[in-house]
Amino acid sequence: MIGCLCIHGYTGGPYEVQPLVDYLEQRTNWMFEVPTLPGHGRKLDLKGRYYQEWIATAELAFLKLAKTCDVVYVIGFSMGGMIAAYLAGKYKVDRLVLLSAAGKYISVPQMYKDITDFVAEALKGTLADNDLFLHYQDKLKQTPFPSSIEFVKLIRFTRPFLKEVQVPVLIIQGQQDEMVPDKAAIYLEQEIPSTDKQLVFMKESKHLICYGKDKEELFETVMSFLTR
C-alpha cells in the first residue's frame, strides 16, 4: 500500500492542496492523509497556538500512514513544505514534493507589484473585486502577530533538516509567487543533498500554486515524479 501525506501552509488549510489531492485520488488507489494544522482551516483560530503543535500534527499523520503503508510520499505546500522536509530528514520517506516551500520568507519584487496593482485598482474603484486582495485582507484580520513569530520559529527549526534529506525530491515554484521568492526554491535545491532532485518553475503560478493557471502541468509533473 502507498500512502501520501499532504501538508498545507501557514494560515491556510487542506483546501490549499485539495486540487492536487483530488487529481491523485482519481488516478491511484493510494491512502491519503491531509491534516488540518491546529488553528488553521477556513476559519482561523491561531491565538495561543505554537509551531510545535503544527509539526506534531503533521508528524502524527505521517506515523499513522507509516504503520499501514509500505511506501509513503510526503507533499508540502509553503510552510507545509518545510514540515515535509523535516519529516523526510527524520523518517523513512520514499519521495518528497515541495510546493512553494517557505525556506525563504517574502518575495519583495512580486509583493511590490501586487501592492501597485492594488493601488491602481483602488483608484479605479475595482479593488473590492480583486480575489487576491480579498484573500490576504481576510487572512490579515484573522492572524495575531505572535502567530507570525511562531511561523518564523518553525522555519528556523526545520531548516537544518534540509541537509538530512537523501530521498528523491521534486521542488516546484511559481514564478509569479507573491509570498515566496524564486531564490527560495534555488536555496532548497542547494541545501538538500539528495542526488535525485528536480527543480521546476511554473511560469503562470502565484503562491496558491494548486490553483494556478498552469495547475494541470503541475499535477502531471507531480504524478509523473511519484509514479516514475
Rank of each mutant, 00 (worst) to 15 (best):
M1S: 13
C4R: 03
C4A: 10
L5R: 07
C6D: 01
I7S: 09
H8I: 06
G12I: 05
G12W: 09
G13Q: 06
E16Q: 14
Q18G: 00
P19T: 08
E25K: 15
Q26M: 11
R27P: 10
M31G: 02
P35Q: 07
L37G: 06
P38R: 04
R42D: 13
Y50Q: 11
E53Y: 04
A56S: 13
T57D: 03
T57S: 12
F62M: 02
L63S: 06
T68P: 00
V72S: 05
V72Q: 09
V74K: 07
V74D: 05
G76T: 05
G76M: 07
G80L: 04
G80W: 09
G81I: 08
M82P: 07
A84M: 04
Y86W: 13
V97N: 05
A102N: 15
A102H: 05
Y105P: 00
S107G: 03
M111S: 13
M111P: 00
D114C: 02
T116M: 10
E121D: 12
A128N: 13
D131E: 15
F133H: 11
Y136C: 00
Y136M: 03
K139P: 00
K139C: 01
K141I: 14
F145P: 04
F151M: 14
K153C: 09
T158Y: 07
R159Q: 12
K163T: 14
E164S: 13
Q166P: 00
I171C: 05
I172C: 11
Q173I: 02
Q175D: 13
Q175K: 15
Q176H: 10
Q176G: 01
E178K: 11
D182N: 13
I186F: 08
Y187R: 03
E189N: 11
P193S: 05
P193R: 09
S194H: 08
T195N: 13
D196V: 08
Q198W: 05
L199I: 03
L199Q: 07
L199D: 08
V200Q: 09
M202D: 02
H207Q: 07
H207P: 11
I209E: 07
Y211G: 01
Y211V: 01
D214R: 09
D214Q: 10
E216K: 14
E216L: 13
E220Q: 15
V222P: 10
M223G: 01
F225P: 06
T227R: 07
